[in-house]
Simulated assay, not measured.
Amino acid sequence: MKLEPFGNSAALSLGVELELQLVNTHDYDLAPYAQDMLRLMAARKLPGSVVPEMTSSMIEISTDVCTSTTQVLDELTQLRDALVACADKLNIAVVGGGTHPFQQWHERRIYDKPRFRELSELYGYLSKQFTIFGQHVHVGCPDANTALVTLHRLSRYIPHFIALSASSPYVQGQDTAFDSARLNSVFAFPLSGRAPFALTWDAFEAYYDKMTRTGVVKSMKDFYWDIRPKPEYGTIEIRVFDTPLTVERAAALAAYVQSLAAWCMADEPFMPADDDYLVYTYNRFQACRFGLDAVYVDPATGEHLPLREHIRQTMDHIAPHARGLGAEPGLALLRTEVEQDRNDARWLRERQGEERLLAEVIRQAAGRFRGQPA
């Protein structure tokens, strides 16, 4: 299949997708209620969309194309409130977080949709293990070449995105010692990881043509890269975020992406180089494993510094753009949590330390998603 032309979009426009957990209210394990939720949600007039995901205990909500993070938060809040109301009718709950802490992958059911059945046949048990939950952020780019250069500039900040959103410390009842264990499941797929180093659309098209000729790739959907171009939307899509526990944090993460992209496009702070990727996997691992306590290796200088310090420095650089975009409240929320050394993984561990029962942790996380005080 030929690569479609890069579409038109307003620079720095946003679209946000959230994959969410559906759990019962008896033991707070995952519950296969996606079809029922979709039926109830379809009766409501809402922004964006609500669609199924790989397994039947998951659901994905998406905003429309948004011009500001205020609009992102407004639309996510409307979708959240509708989800909660529909879940109440079904006596289930909706929860954020990158993994369900104690679900067993072999109990999952593949959602009955042709693409999901095809993926299940191809990937076997990995498809059910893909019952993990992420936030994707699309940011609009004025043209294809700007999109690719911005993609590779933003790749330096993948550890920021991972640490700030990390919410998957538990897998199958065990503390993994990772803040984001979710991304270990993504890495099992053969076309995951980093995008190829191409700074022009012509070069990217040549790469895409080579890949399609091998028969391994049929469309852009086959690439599970951390950041990928989405030519049909005229955006780049960042895919490494764990789903946060609240829509407020999801909107704050979108504010960070928008402000960072504005800085990259307007100030052109550096030109990306292929050698940036020499430390990419190491930095990515550090952020998954240690969250805000990670070490960050600067790809340009080789300097080692605390990741939280690199995040603070970056927030200072992008602050003027955040002000211009009205994204300051989102950055302020994230900065406060960096200063307090808190992310959602820390919250989940603290709750488990007090309760000693992961089902109770999920019950409280469902309350947080509803908008109840922490």
Score class of each variant (00 low, 15 high):
67 T>H: 09
111 Y>H: 14
282 Y>I: 07
297 V>S: 03
96 G>D: 06
281 T>P: 00
139 V>N: 10
178 F>V: 04
93 A>G: 04
207 Y>P: 00
84 V>C: 09
105 W>F: 07
29 D>V: 01
101 P>M: 01
284 R>E: 06
247 V>P: 05
55 T>F: 03
41 M>P: 08
307 L>C: 06
313 Q>R: 15
135 Q>I: 03
129 Q>P: 00
182 R>T: 02
55 T>G: 02
222 D>K: 04
158 I>L: 13
142 P>I: 08
290 F>D: 15
289 R>Y: 13
229 P>A: 03
179 D>M: 10
168 S>F: 01
141 C>R: 09
166 A>K: 10
150 T>M: 14
316 D>T: 14
130 F>Q: 14
205 E>D: 12
252 A>C: 08
51 V>S: 10
81 D>Q: 14
215 G>I: 10
137 V>K: 07
260 L>K: 09
195 A>E: 04
274 D>H: 06
92 I>V: 02
315 M>I: 10
102 F>I: 06
332 A>M: 05
54 M>K: 00
280 Y>C: 02
216 V>W: 11
347 W>A: 06
121 E>M: 07
225 W>T: 08
220 M>Y: 04
218 K>Y: 13
287 A>P: 11
73 L>I: 05
88 D>A: 14
296 Y>C: 11
147 A>I: 05
14 L>F: 02
111 Y>C: 03
126 L>V: 01
189 F>A: 03
163 A>W: 01
290 F>L: 15
143 D>Y: 07
3 L>Q: 06
72 V>L: 06
109 R>N: 11
126 L>R: 15
266 A>P: 00
280 Y>A: 15
208 Y>Q: 04
106 H>R: 14
205 E>H: 08
88 D>G: 02
154 L>W: 00
155 S>N: 15
227 I>E: 04
239 R>L: 01
32 P>N: 12
277 Y>W: 10
204 F>W: 11
247 V>A: 06
84 V>K: 09
12 L>R: 11
198 A>V: 13
79 L>H: 04
244 P>G: 01
230 K>I: 14
178 F>C: 11
57 S>P: 00
66 C>W: 00
168 S>A: 09
260 L>C: 05
79 L>M: 03
260 L>A: 12
